[in-house]
Nucleic acid binder design. Structure first.
Lengths: 343, 343
DNA sequence: CTGTTAGCGCGTTCAA
DNA sequence: TTGAACGCGCTAACAG
């Protein structure tokens, strides 16, 4: 049942059917109703999206390219919030959301996702080849990193990290330590040793945050060598827990009394593991997070963290793609939230 | 820059270009490389997905229609897990995921989403008109409710609820109560009174779960009238909290000593609010949840709940759509998890 | 191995 | 207000 079939059934031209669905003012209401009625009868549910988008060049679909696998991203609070901001705006303008995995299947057929009218690239590594495979000419916005020639949406990770670290260091901790998120070149879930090399790009979020931490630490007289670091590859409880346990199970005189974590998920894992070991927070151990996810504010002690508005990031990205906002770089503000985990 | 342009540039036919991208075995490697090289030079990034899908009839896109708004669904742990199961399978087979809002914009243009090769409808109300607007003939799977003529993926909500309630009632609580999720016909965040009418469809998840609770309660000599009920419209902390506070702030002799909650999110909110009020769990208040989301198992006390495998639901739905599994109804098993919130 | 041809279903002229 | 004709960019079938 196609538009053409319907036209034949009704004895009108295909243009009339098309108009009945797309420009009601181009034909008499009576005829229009007749068309719509017949369409329902015959089970014709409107112009085919594929043909329509081929013809018009637009699909009303916006794609979000996710750094991590879809599976992972959908279970990550920060990414989910971001997506919900995107979805909110798209929805309001009658567009839909296509999710594209960043690190696709190796044998991915060429651009099964290039139907999209525009692309939002979320937290991809700067040199990923996928980006060059995206069709040029179509609007593209990057989030949390830069793509040459496209506007990026950012927060000031360095300043925010420095800020929260400065706050934490005011309590004069003896043994501060850092838990990083995807900092090392080689995947590593555990202690970072001098042999490890960091990811090359200084535009990486982790590098930016680490720089902020270091600036604050140095101001307090700590050298990087004095501050042990661990790394985590995936921002989930399951991956974090073993690393955190390794940290907390050290002899007490060696165990850090301040943990600067690069995400709330890591910080919450620390909180949970500390609870299990009867390590008092914040008396024996201070913890800071990053992101400001809802979960961190519900439980006691609440997390001291940097809140970034991921939902708003998503909104802005979507609005740029839809042309509701100029395609220009944006830097969103962050907010230091002081919870009980590090007062 | 289209396929045809490229063909002209190279002095070959369009079919050759098409083959170069789609069937490498149909032309000499030398020619193929020449094509690919030239394509890169000219910035041609492969066959246009719109035209290709018009021609082939397939788009390699599968749509998930979500009951709630995208914004809400993306922030709900259960829905996210489901989506991640779907995404995992689609990804593995080179398909992508299109998210469609169930309760769309009123003025939604006809089916901007009917490009999809198949549809997975997640937790929609049975009589939603949207379903009839989906193109017929294309595979359709429903999850957590039934659509006539399509296979559904389910759990046995009634049996699972009965099971957990039976467990909870073994402790002989004096004042059991229920916190429902979207049970009433009219939106209601608060106490359910006799005036309230329930949602009509007995195939609704809430009705099924309530039935299970009632069966267990009756077996212990409780009549429905003796068991106060509250309702919650949206499964978020922000919406749950006021209702939960209303419940917990009652005088102690009136306050429930067992709360059967229809979701883990609700149960976790109860836990948080109880903590704030120094109500001991489980001594003064027992709490049960439903779903088995990760968050409920991280914090102490862990939630007593029914674990359902939402990820697996998503996997199965996607596999059916892709034809990897027969299009037949499936009922997944659930598991009673006994945490400290109701031992 | 390569080229030719005929649509896929629709939107948009332009003329009536 | 309506209809006829064209082509959006591509792929499948076949012919060479």
């Amino acid at each position: 049942m196609t538009l053409k079939d319907l036209a034949r059934e009704l004895g009108v031209s295909t243009a009339t059917i098309s108009n009945a669905f797309n420009r009601p003012d181009q034909l008499s209401p009576a005829l229009r109703n007749r068309v719509l009625e017949k369409a329902r009868q015959l089970g014709y549910s409107g112009p085919d999206a594929k043909a329509r988008s081929l013809r018009t060049g637009r699909s009303r679909i916006v794609a979000v390219v996710l750094a991590e696998s879809l599976t992972y991203s959908l279970n990550d609070a920060v990414a989910s919030e971001f997506l919900s901001g995107v979805a909110e705006v798209l929805d309001a303008h009658g567009h839909t959301l296509l999710l594209l995995p960043g690190r696709g299947h190796a044998s991915q057929p060429p651009g099964s996702g290039n139907i999209a009218d525009g692309f939002i690239v979320y937290g991809l590594m700067p040199n990923n080849q996928l980006i060059s495979e995206l069709p040029p000419q179509r609007p593209l916005v990057s989030v949390d990193f830069d793509i040459e020639g496209s506007p990026a949406i950012h927060i000031d990770d360095t300043a925010a990290s420095q800020h929260i670290a400065e706050h934490a260091l005011r309590q004069r901790p003896k043994r501060p330590a850092i838990i990083n998120l995807r900092l090392t070149e080689q995947p590593c879930n555990g202690r970072i040793t001098p042999e490890h090399r960091f990811l090359p790009h200084s535009s990486t979020i982790s590098r930016a945050r680490l720089n902020g931490f270091y600036t604050a630490l140095k101001a307090q007289g700590f050298t990087p060598e004095q501050v042990p670091m661990w790394n985590i590859e995936e921002n989930t409880f399951a991956v974090c827990a073993p690393v955190v346990e390794e940290i907390l199970d050290q002899p007490e005189h060696q165990r850090p009394d301040l943990l600067l974590c690069m995400s709330d998920r890591i910080a919450l894992t620390v909180l949970t593991c500390a609870e299990q070991r009867n390590i008092r927070v914040p008396e024996d151990l201070q913890i800071t997070g990053f992101d400001g996810i809802a979960e961190g504010q519900y439980r006691a002690p609440r997390l001291t963290t940097v809140r970034q508005d991921s939902v708003e990031k998503g909104r802005i990205a979507a609005q740029m793609i839809l042309g509701k906002l100029p395609m220009a770089p944006q830097e969103l503000t962050t907010e230091l939230i002081i919870g009980e985990s590090c007062p």
